[in-house]
């Protein structure tokens, strides 16, 4: 039995949030930025990259804890902070939901921020947000 991956459902939850959508216009990516997301200085635009950091599977129940980082890029540090706050609102303390593919998340939480930084290659402001997700290990038919 394969281990269900809640990344898609989490990404959809963030992308479909009205506040996040207003800030990034759908530019919420999994793993790495899409071509055209990162523009040069003076043309920076907001986008979110969701990266999976690791997981821990319960030995006693069919559940897993998965940890993510949401890298929230914006044109300014204030913008990046506002975007991270919107992403946090979109997922924090959100209860049970099931994706169309049968992935079941029973809780997601903002686990704190890694602070604000600049991307080393482009100097674009970025804010790190850590997310903990509790999910079932198997798909619900």
């Amino acid at each position: 039995m394969s281990l269900a991956d809640p990344t898609g459902k989490l990404l959809t939850d963030i992308r479909d949030d009205a506040t996040v959508a207003a800030l990034v216009s759908g530019r919420v990516r999994a793993g790495e930025a899409a071509p055209g997301d990162a523009l040069g200085a003076g043309h920076w635009q907001a986008f979110v990259v969701l990266a999976r950091l690791g997981h821990s599977r319960s030995p006693h129940a069919p559940t897993q804890a998965v940890r993510y980082v949401a890298r929230c890029y914006a044109a300014t540090h204030q913008g990046a902070t506002a975007l991270a706050a919107a992403v946090s609102d979109a997922i924090h303390a959100k209860g049970r939901r099931i994706s169309g593919g049968g992935v079941s998340i029973f809780g997601s939480f903002d686990d704190g921020g890694g602070g604000s930084d600049k991307d080393p290659d482009t100097d674009q402001p970025v804010e790190y947000l850590f997310i903990d997700v509790g999910a079932l290990t198997s798909l619900i038919p």
Partner: peptide, 17 residues
């Protein structure tokens, strides 16, 4: 955590978890 040009290569979080 990764950067704009490089995907994340987590090593500490997997070890922790």
């Amino acid at each position: 955590l990764g950067t704009i040009k490089m995907p994340a290569h987590p090593f500490l979080t997997p070890a922790l978890m």
